[in-house]
């Protein structure tokens, strides 16, 4: 092997120095790129958090105006009839147990919580259905948890609600508030039924006089209820073809068919209506 000459050694040394300088520059650029990538991630996080907080504030603010509750309690019979079964996805499941009653009337038992999004969805349908058999007072607007999935479902709470009907009694337990803090404690009998028919412990749990029970929401409303305002949802209920009406009113008709089973078809103006019959045939 030939020994490198002085000129070759010098050229190699200069090339090495040039390479080292270029390497130093590239290292600095790449290190800066690392910082930029981490900064972009941090920006995503901060912007996402702000957007979420803003949606949460908007949902709570929209729920503070409870004007939409009267719309749920006064859905016209023609709208119920036009929707029929709608897009109700699951019907309460028939069970055979000792009939549940209170004061000589069949009892409907609801167990849920204010944070729970599926309870929030189901309350729309359950409230509408029960309002066809009696009168609610003390209903208050509410919104489900911002951190649960789906988030911020506009709804109503039964926490201070009273229900009077000559056909049915309604017992409700909102077991926790929007933040998950404990609220109402169910009775021993209610807890026993919950344990018997809802082995997974999911809410909402609704027992229709021990003739049928439902666990979870009976319609899939997450896509149009999440982060929506109660007023907007109530407005959409006027259009029988809207997704909101198809889901909420369809589920209300299905629930009504089960309530009619408890009341032995009374009142006939409700139980013999086209919407309920169509929903019952769907069940």
């Amino acid at each position: 092997m030939a020994t490198p000459t002085g000129r070759e050694k010098l050229a190699a040394m200069q090339a090495q120095q040039a390479r080292a300088a270029r390497q130093k520059k590239l290292l600095a650029i790449t290190s800066a790129a690392v910082v930029v990538v981490l900064a972009v991630v941090a920006i995503f996080f901060v912007v996402g958090q702000n957007k979420k907080d803003s949606q949460d504030k908007k949902a709570v603010s929209a729920a503070s105006n409870g004007g939409y509750l009267s719309s749920v309690l006064n859905i016209p019979a023609t709208t119920y009839d036009a929707v029929g079964h709608g897009s109700a996805s699951t019907a309460p499941k028939a069970v055979t147990g000792k009939p549940l009653s209170k004061g000589g009337k069949p009892e409907v038992l609801y167990m849920g919580a204010e944070f729970c999004p599926y309870c929030g969805m189901e309350r729309w349908a359950l409230t509408a259905a029960l309002s066809r058999f009696g009168t609610f007072t003390g209903l208050q607007p509410a919104v489900s948890s911002a951190t649960d999935s789906p988030s911020n479902i506009p709804t109503m709470t039964y926490l201070h609600a009273k229900y009077t009907s000559k056909y049915l009694t309604f017992t409700s337990y909102e077991m926790a508030d929007r933040a998950g803090n404990k609220l109402q404690t169910p009775s021993k009998a209610a807890t026993t039924l919950f344990g018997k028919y809802d082995s997974g412990g999911s809410i909402p749990f609704i027992d229709y006089g021990n003739k049928a029970v439902s666990v979870g929401a009976t319609f899939q409303g997450a896509s149009y209820l999440q982060n929506a305002s109660g007023s907007d949802v109530a407005a959409k209920l006027k259009d029988p073809n809207s997704a909101e009406a198809q889901g909420i009113i369809g589920a209300a008709n299905v629930i009504t068919a089960h309530l009619c089973d408890l009341t032995k078809g009374q009142p006939s103006s409700v139980c013999a209506s086209t919407g309920v019959i169509r929903a019952a045939s769907g069940v």
Partner: peptide
């Protein structure tokens, strides 16, 4: 890495989880 950016955008800004 570009795909990671897209997924982070979806997680932080759309799904919020």
């Amino acid at each position: 890495l570009l795909m990671v950016f897209y997924l982070l955008w979806a997680e932080f800004l759309q799904i919020h989880a």
